[in-house]
């Protein structure tokens, strides 16, 4: 249940507008101008975040196609051709072929979590089923909680932050490059 970034940014924006802005002195022109820019930047970032990854992947495909067109125009023996071809291959090796719609993905995962919660709740009414499902759920909670604790460790709420792994070590498979 890590709060989504656009929601957190919306809360930051509301605090700046509702609490901070009204108490700035009328003659604090520079601070008022800065605050207005901060609020507008936050609004823009909130809007962009859901599409940001798709934007990068779009760039990857678009520029590798464009780079290929440029490469095709170059004589085979041209000294930059090899370097350009390598750069195109590097991008193609990383970029996923399809980008999921982030909002749709979040909604689908949320629905799945809800379906699991309902299943566990209803199964829990029967002691025998609960005995079977309980350890599975607790083990998953322990695993998921480790990632979520690591994700929010900088809040200072954790009793033992030094024991937490970096989120990257959980999010990316062994040997895979963080994207």
């Amino acid at each position: 249940m890590v709060p989504d970034t656009p929601l957190r940014l919306a809360a930051v924006q509301k605090a700046l507008e509702d609490i901070v802005a009204p108490v700035l002195p009328p003659d604090a022109d520079f601070a008022r101008e800065q605050l207005a820019l901060i609020v507008r930047s936050l609004a823009l970032v909130r809007k962009q975040i859901p599409q940001e990854y798709a934007f990068h992947v779009h760039d990857a495909h678009d520029f590798s196609a464009f780079g290929s067109e440029v490469a095709a125009c170059l004589p085979d023996a041209h000294p930059v051709r090899g370097e350009l071809t390598q750069a195109i291959e590097d991008v193609r090796a990383i970029a996923p072929p399809v980008v999921p719609d982030r909002t749709a993905l979040e909604q689908a995962v949320r629905a799945l979590r809800g379906a699991i919660e309902t299943a566990v709740q209803q199964a829990g009414e029967d002691a025998a089923t609960l005995r079977a499902i309980g350890p599975v759920v607790l083990e998953h909670t322990r695993r998921q909680t480790l990632l979520e604790r690591a994700w929010v460790a900088d809040t200072g709420f954790d009793r033992d932050p030094a024991s937490l792994p970096l989120p990257e070590t959980i999010l990316y498979s062994a040997g895979e490059t963080p994207r």
């Binding site: 890590v2 909680t145 979520e148 929010v152 709420f157």
Partner: peptide, 19 residues
């Protein structure tokens, strides 16, 4: 809202404690 979103992140250490 800013405090509520911040405090919501106590959830994860708490779930660890419960587990």
């Amino acid at each position: 809202d800013i405090l509520l979103t911040w405090l919501s992140m106590v959830t994860h250490p708490l779930l660890d404690e419960i587990t």
